[in-house]
Simulated scan of single mutants.
Amino acid sequence: MPPADPSAEPGAAPDAGSTGAEDTLDLKLTEELLASIAEERNTGPGRDRASRELLGDPGAWPPVTTAAGSFGLLPVRPERDLPVLSRWMNDPAVAAFWELAGPESVTVDHLRPQLDGDGRSVPCLGVLDGTPMSYWEIYRADLDPLARHYPARPHDTGVHLLIGGVRNRGRGVGTTLLRAVADLVLDNLPRCGRVVAEPDLRNTPSVSAFLSAGFRFSAEVELPDKRAALMIRDRTYRAQL
């Protein structure tokens, strides 16, 4: 589990803090980087076979059209993405739940076990209409410490996320993208029957976003660092929710 809440739309003073709309406006991808993204999606990020068997390759999942725009996942590369990720982590609204404020080394220490691990958690940028604007972790919940706290099923897949720019908070973008990413997981991981999440119960906007995205509230769970709402989106009922 990450050290703090995977907030969909942080509720703490969403229009205040050290970052604003400019954190996304200056991140428009160049043609060279867009070509790099396309190549990465075609060839994969170079994970070994064992890693790909755990979660596939989220970077190769095709972008989807949403009400907010064209959205896709791009596996994190620290040499490219660290400055913006660290800046997002230092936004007070994000730091209140993720607790990763500080120098870039704090973000690196959070990313490194995932990047150097066996592929059970894949950190990604969420790219909306060519602009990186969110951070996602797609992880095998049944292989995560979370599985000690709920009746996990094989291939349960979890999501953590944060919305990076103030402009994209509080207007339903988190809900739209949560539904899109849950659909991407279910479409590309056929053995996954459920997408799960565990937002902090105190983060009402986050819990509300999951509910609006088709997740159901399953239980309250006591985790080492928080009391969480266990949210589940079932493959069986995805068309009805």
Results as ranks from 00 to 15, higher is better:
Ile37Pro: 03
Leu27Ser: 05
Arg41Gly: 09
Glu198Pro: 07
Ala141Lys: 05
Ala38Thr: 04
Ser18Asp: 12
Leu230Ile: 01
Arg80Ala: 04
Lys226Leu: 08
Leu25Lys: 11
Ile163Pro: 00
Gly193Cys: 00
Ala68Arg: 06
Leu55Trp: 08
Ala213Tyr: 10
Val185Arg: 04
Ser208Arg: 03
Ser36Met: 11
Pro75Cys: 13
Val185Gly: 04
Gly59Val: 01
Ile163Ala: 08
Asp26Ile: 15
Gly119Arg: 05
Asn168Gly: 15
Gly102Asn: 13
Ala16His: 12
Thr175Glu: 13
Arg171Val: 14
Leu146His: 01
Glu198Lys: 01
Glu22Asp: 11
His155Glu: 12
Gly56Ser: 01
Gly158Ser: 00
Arg140Val: 02
Ala16Ile: 13
Ser18Glu: 07
Ala93Asp: 13
Asp48His: 06
Thr175Lys: 09
Pro154Met: 02
Asp23Cys: 15
Ser218Thr: 02
Leu241Cys: 15
Pro14Leu: 02
Ser121Gly: 06
Asp15Pro: 06
Pro58Asp: 06
Val185Met: 07
Cys124Phe: 07
Leu201Thr: 14
Ala213Trp: 06
Asp81Ile: 07
Trp61Ser: 13
Ser212Pro: 11
Arg52Cys: 13
Tyr237Pro: 12
Leu74Arg: 12
Phe217Thr: 03
Pro151Phe: 06
Asp234Ile: 06
Pro58Gly: 10
Ala209Met: 05
Phe210Ala: 06
Ala180Asn: 05
Asn203Thr: 01
Pro14Lys: 12
Leu27His: 05
Leu125Glu: 02
Gly72Phe: 04
Arg194Tyr: 00
Trp88Thr: 11
Gly69Ile: 08
Gln114Met: 15
Cys192Pro: 14
Gly117Ile: 02
Val94Gly: 08
Cys192Asp: 09
Pro14Trp: 10
Asn188Gln: 09
Arg194Ile: 05
Arg120Asn: 07
Ala50Phe: 14
Val185Lys: 01
Thr24Cys: 15
Ser70Met: 08
Trp61Gln: 08
Thr24Asp: 04
Gly165Arg: 10
Leu201Trp: 05
Asp15His: 10
Arg77His: 03
Arg202Met: 00
Asp200Ser: 06
Leu177Thr: 02
Pro199Ser: 09
Leu82Trp: 07
Leu230Gly: 01
Gly126Cys: 14
Val76Leu: 12
Val173Cys: 08
Arg80Val: 05
Thr107Phe: 12
Glu79Phe: 13
Val159Asn: 07
Tyr139Ser: 06
Arg179Ala: 11
Pro154Trp: 00
Leu55Asn: 07
Gly164Pro: 02
Ser70Pro: 11
Asp26Val: 12
Val207Ser: 02
Leu189Met: 10
Ser206Lys: 04
Arg87His: 10
Leu29Glu: 10
Gly11Met: 02
Leu211Ser: 11
Phe215His: 03
Ser105Tyr: 15
Val76Met: 08
